[in-house]
């Protein structure tokens, strides 16, 4: 379990770190000379690999304690935040990124891209905070008496 959790932390931090580089480029800070398309293609390769690793480790952690996670408010909010990150990314790629050729070298990028970048940073910070909150709250969300041990059936 410590190994799976450590992998989850490492992969999650990698997702955050690599997306941060892309988001900061959209905000025009500090990687201003590199084309947006180049920063995206370089970083997002690592992001997706790390995301897949994180998801796998997270699924293993979830399956070990499914009932606790499902009832945990921080976990639910985290899933909602991840969904938000996905929607933000989908909207960015469907609309703003479509004419990226016109602003590839611009720093900062157009307003819509800057909003997407800022939203992304905010959401991913929330994801990490909520993730840490799960570990501190999951016990309190049990609707069973303290010190009662139940073997969950999966």
């Amino acid at each position: 379990m410590p190994v799976i959790e450590a992998i989850h932390v490492l992969a999650g931090a990698t997702v955050f770190g690599t997306i941060l580089i892309v988001d900061l480029r959209l905000l025009g800070f500090p990687d201003t000379r590199r084309p947006v398309t180049r920063v995206c293609s370089e970083m997002l390769r690592i992001t997706w690999i790390a995301f897949a690793v994180s998801l796998t480790a997270g699924a293993l952690m979830f399956s070990a304690n499914a009932h606790t996670y499902v009832g945990n408010t921080a976990f639910r909010l985290k899933m909602l935040a991840l969904l938000g990150a996905g929607v933000n990314m989908a909207l960015f790629h469907a609309f703003t990124f479509r004419n990226v050729k016109a602003w590839d070298q611009n720093a900062p990028a157009p307003l819509a891209a800057r909003i997407a970048g800022a939203t992304s940073i905010l959401i991913w910070v929330c994801v990490i905070f909520l993730a840490r909150w799960i570990g501190f709250t999951k016990g309190f969300d049990f609707k069973i008496p303290v010190n009662t041990h139940i073997n969950f059936q999966f």
């Binding site: 932390v9 999650g12 931090a13 990698t14 955050f16 770190g17 580089i21 993730a131 840490r132 501190f136």
Partner: peptide, 24 residues
């Protein structure tokens, strides 16, 4: 009660910044 998870969260966010910077 929230101080330790809050500080731990910042600690983890910084893993992303430091580790990825080093990796780059």
């Amino acid at each position: 009660s929230w101080v330790i998870p809050f500080v731990q969260s910042i600690h983890i966010l910084m893993i992303g910044v430091v580790f990825i910077s080093c990796l780059m």
